[in-house]
Design a protein around this nucleic acid. Structure first.
Length: 476
RNA sequence: UCCUCCUUAGCUCAGUUGGUUAGAGCAUCUGACUGUUAAUCAGAGGGUCCUAGGUUCGAAUCCUAGAGGGGGAGCCA
């Protein structure tokens, strides 16, 4: 008999029908006469209750239905006599597909800490929280592709192994087939696999620009690698990044695209993952129950998502932001660790948080940063001091998007590369796009895991990717 | 990389000023129970107190070093 997924059973409620379900046991409880099995098959956060009457089943079978075991059930869908579910399955036959020794199976039907589950990353998919997070991760993946596809963008697979070491986006992982245990003091990269020094990509942007200057609208969505020794709740050594790049678009259009994109993705989850979001919403309420009032969030998860969709992001220039910060209470009272004095100061995370969480209480887009603190490829403003950059700051997670209008003028770009010590020879192909048929264009990079954090309310980035890669950890 | 906190049973955690045989809840096992909702009730088993040194008559507790983890900072997405 073909199995029906739990999600469909709960939606259709076809009472009286004989059905087959397969899944993993969350709990079994009951008395000598009757057992209740909470069964989950991953199609939804919700379990289906299987009722096994004692006289129909051998004690030996019932004993094997432990938390974590996989079973197949054939039975009749009936209205439930219990209070907490409408329907349940009255089991006629139960087959044990895979046992889970209760003495050894690490997950119990109770709350586990996220830290503990991180050490059990191979099994944490089986918990409510992580199954919800990973269904949402999928929904967001799909929403990203759907958004861009519907707008006529082409997906571009930028290379994962690259010889470019010029963007300065971060420390790189080297890729080599050289025998590291027998390497001389002088390394001859012409003998290496690719005949030159290669690394894992830190960004697909430069390649995306090449494609955009032909296909018009493109985006990359792929893995990105940074070997920085960052030990924080919002950095990974391997993460996924989305980088749209649009020809003939200026910074305004770039911001409009980013804002529309973020709202679309969030709305997609609200529409398609209501059960999972409701579960995560409750989870956060529970988590914050014991916190002091001032430590609690003003809004619940769902409320927060709705709020972001319904309100325009606050847009201001770097100079305006510095002005606000310089005159802010924490700056005057020297509560900031880094006091803002004026133009040229970098915005630290405490300043970003002040703007987003205290001053505007919504997402903020800051534009036109000093050129000294931004990358070489950003379009220079007339003032000679600032560049057409934009960062989108989100509540709780900080910078979620970094983007800019690109410098399309060959002369200005070359000059800036020289000033910043970027090797022009290495990026000859990048420069040729400015030599042949150059045009204004813009793009941004969005950290996919940071978006998932915002949508799910998870506070540590390691809990929104199946197998996090961080310094000193590449388990599983 | 820096600052800071933590590491005690399978899990979550208590352990007073350094003092007998290190505790609780949950989980597990045994038994009871006619429909449970993290079922309940009774009983049992379960410990490298992170590791290595040191101080002390005596260390889970104090000191030093190391490992692992959390939070914050920097870098960024």
């Amino acid at each position: 008999m073909k199995r029906t997924k739990v999600k469909r059973l709960l939606a259709e409620k076809a009472i009286g029908q004989e059905i087959c379900v397969k899944g993993w046991v969350r709990t079994r409880r009951g008395s000598k006469n009757v057992s209740f099995i909470a069964l989950n098959d991953g199609s939804t956060i919700n379990n289906i209750q299987v009722v096994a009457e004692g006289d129909h089943f051998d004690d030996k079978i019932l004993k094997k239905i432990t938390t974590g075991s996989a079973i197949s059930v054939i039975g009749i869908l009936v209205a439930s006599k219990g209070g907490q579910q409408n329907i349940e399955i009255l089991a006629a036959a139960i087959e044990i597909l895979g046992e889970a020794d209760a003495d050894e199976y690490p997950l119990q039907p109770k709350k586990h800490s996220l830290e503990f589950l991180r050490e059990k990353a191979h099994l944490r998919f089986r918990t409510n929280t992580f199954s919800a997070v990973f269904r949402l991760r999928h929904a967001l993946t799909f929403a990203v592709h759907k958004f861009f596809n519907d707008k006529g963008f082409s997906s571009i697979h930028s290379p994962i192994i690259t010889g470019v070491d010029a963007e300065g986006a971060g420390e790189m992982f080297q890729v080599t087939t050289l025998d590291l245990e027998n390497i001389g003091p002088e390394v001859d990269y012409t003998t290496d696999f690719f005949g030159s020094k290669t690394n894992l990509t830190v960004s697909g942007q430069l390649e995306a620009e090449l494609a955009a200057l032909a296909l018009g609208q493109v985006y990359t969505f792929g893995p990105t690698f940074r070997s920085e020794n960052s030990n924080t709740s919002r950095h990974l050594s391997e993460f996924w990044m989305i980088e749209p790049e649009v020809a003939f678009a200026d910074l305004e259009e770039n911001m409009d695209l980013a804002e529309e994109f973020l709202k679309y993705c969030i709305q997609y989850c609200i529409t398609n993952c209501a059960d999972d979001l409701r579960f995560l919403d409750n989870r956060l309420v529970e988590e914050e129950k014991n916190l002091k009032k001032e430590e609690k969030h003003e809004m619940g998860l769902l409320e927060r998502l709705q709020f972001v969709i319904e309100n325009d992001f606050e847009r201001l220039t770097y100079i305006e932001a510095i002005d606000i910060l310089r005159n802010s209470k924490p700056n005057k009272k020297k509560k900031f660790n880094y006091i803002i004095e004026g133009f040229g100061d970098d915005l630290q995370s405490e300043h970003e948080r002040y703007l987003v969480e205290k001053k505007f209480k919504k997402p903020v887009i800051i534009t036109d940063y000093p050129k000294g603190i931004k990358a070489f490829y950003m379009k220079q403003n007339e003032d000679g001091k600032t560049v057409r950059a934009m960062d989108i700051l989100f509540p709780l997670i900080g910078e979620i998007v970094g983007g800019s209008q690109r410098e399309e003028d060959l002369e200005k770009l070359s000059q800036r590369m020289e000033e910043m010590g970027v090797e022009k020879e290495e990026l000859w192909w990048y420069l040729e796009t400015r030599k042949f048929g150059t045009c204004i264009h813009s793009g941004f990079g969005l950290g996919f895991e940071r978006l998932i954090m915002f949508v799910t309310g998870m506070k540590n980035i390691r809990d929104v990717i199946p197998f996090p890669r961080t310094p000193q950890n590449a388990d599983f």
